[in-house]
């Protein structure tokens, strides 16, 4: 559908509006510079409101991730997401879970949730996750999940704080600072 065919506006007539809308979205969700003339306090309030809303939506897709971070969830998510435009709630939560996992900061229940997702879906971090056709194993933070013919089982739970040994070569133990690394 083109403007010319509709007979409404010649193409290009709305270019200025398109650029200004793009600049507003970029400053709100991608760390872009504030467009001239906008009130900084209004932009800040809008950014914060968008992040709160997004955190709530991701929490619905990743309940154990959000619950595992507890009171730190919104702050952790907002700190991670402030300059990252959304890729949809499923991928946002997945990317954050992987980032926390890389820093040994993924709570055990969230590690199990991630392992189950990794076993069920193939996600390259760049495009929409797709169901795996072949049997697969998902691992995260000591949790192991297996998928056969679309059915996923958690084979091994993630170790809980009382039993967990230090994880990784140089990272802090799984239990420490799960929400603090990003909320500076």
């Amino acid at each position: 559908m083109t403007d010319a065919r509709d007979g409404t506006q010649p193409p290009g007539d709305l270019t200025g509006l398109a650029e200004r809308q793009a600049a507003l979205v970029a400053t709100l969700v991608a760390g872009g510079p504030p467009p001239p003339g906008f009130a900084p306090a209004q932009l800040a309030a809008t950014r914060a409101a968008l992040l709160r809303k997004r955190a709530g939506e991701v929490a619905r897709h990743w309940p154990l991730l959000a619950a595992g971070l507890g009171a730190g969830w919104t702050t952790t998510f907002a700190g991670w997401a402030a300059r990252r435009p959304t890729a949809g709630s499923l991928r946002d939560g997945w990317d954050l879970a992987r980032a926390l996992h890389d820093r040994h900061a993924l709570p055990p229940a969230a590690a199990e949730e991630l392992a189950v997702r990794e076993a069920r879906l193939r996600y390259d971090g760049l495009s929409a996750p797709r169901p795996r056709r072949l049997p697969a194993v998902g691992r995260a933070g000591g949790a192991v999940a297996a998928q056969i013919a679309g059915r996923v089982r958690l084979l091994r739970p993630a170790p809980r704080p009382s039993t967990v040994p230090p994880v990784g070569d140089d990272g802090p133990p799984d239990t420490a600072g799960s929400a603090s690394w990003i909320s500076d």
Partner: peptide, 10 residues
């Protein structure tokens, strides 16, 4: 706009 989703009504 500009290929980015705002995630809310602007």
């Amino acid at each position: 706009a500009g290929g980015l989703e705002a995630g809310h009504l602007l």
